[in-house]
Simulated scan of single mutants.
Amino acid sequence: MGDFTPSSDGIVVVDKPAGMTSHTVVARVRRLAGTRKVGHAGTLDPMATGVLVAGLNRATRLLGHLQLADKSYDATIRLGAVTTTDDAEGSVVSTAPVDGVTVEAIRTAAAAYRGEISQIPSAVSAIKVDGKRAYERVRAGEEVELKARTVTVSRYDILEVRVGDTWIDIDVSVDCSSGTYIRALARDLGADLGVGGHLTALRRTRVGSFDLKAAHTLEELAEDFVWLPIADVAASTFPRYDVDVEQATAIRTGRPLPGLNLAPGQTAMFDPTGTFLALYEPHGPVAKPTAVFVG
Rank of each mutant, 00 (worst) to 15 (best):
V12L: 12
L44R: 15
R36S: 07
T85N: 04
L56R: 07
A214E: 09
F270M: 02
T24Q: 13
A105W: 11
G196D: 09
I117P: 12
I251W: 01
E220P: 06
R204H: 02
N57E: 10
G50L: 11
K16Y: 05
W167P: 00
M47C: 08
K147F: 00
R28L: 07
L185A: 10
D130G: 12
R155N: 15
P285D: 09
F276R: 11
V161H: 00
G284I: 10
R183H: 05
I127Q: 04
R114N: 02
D171R: 09
S72N: 14
G194C: 06
G208N: 11
L257E: 00
D224Q: 14
M20H: 03
T43Y: 06
R107A: 12
L79W: 02
N261F: 00
G34Q: 15
Y280G: 00
Q119D: 10
A191W: 03
T43W: 04
G208R: 13
L193D: 03
H65T: 02
L199S: 04
A75M: 06
A148T: 04
V53G: 08
S236W: 02
D169E: 08
A231M: 01
T205V: 08
V161M: 06
V226A: 11
S154K: 13
S118P: 07
L277R: 01
D175Y: 06
H198S: 03
S8G: 06
A148Q: 04
A201K: 08
D165E: 10
R133V: 13
A140H: 09
Y113L: 05
R139F: 00
L257I: 04
V294L: 09
A234Y: 05
A148P: 14
M20L: 04
V51G: 04
L212S: 12
V195C: 13
D224Y: 12
D232H: 01
G131P: 01
L260Y: 01
L221W: 05
T43D: 13
E246A: 15
D171F: 08
V13W: 14
T166Y: 09
Q247F: 04
E143T: 15
A134H: 12
G179I: 01
F225H: 05
A231H: 13
G2Q: 11
F293C: 02
D45L: 11
K37M: 13
V292I: 15
A41L: 09
E142T: 07
V172G: 03
V53D: 09
V174K: 12
A112W: 08
I168Q: 01
V174M: 00
A248I: 03
A111S: 15
D3Q: 13
A123E: 03
E116H: 05
V294R: 13
A184R: 01
I251T: 01
Q119K: 02
S8M: 07
A248E: 00
P239C: 05
V233C: 08
T21P: 14
A148C: 06
D45Y: 08
G55Q: 01
E281Y: 14
D224I: 03
R30V: 06
T24D: 10
G39A: 05
D165G: 14
T76I: 11
L63D: 12
R149W: 07
L68C: 14
D244V: 06
L159T: 11
I170D: 07
T267P: 00
G131K: 00
L189G: 06
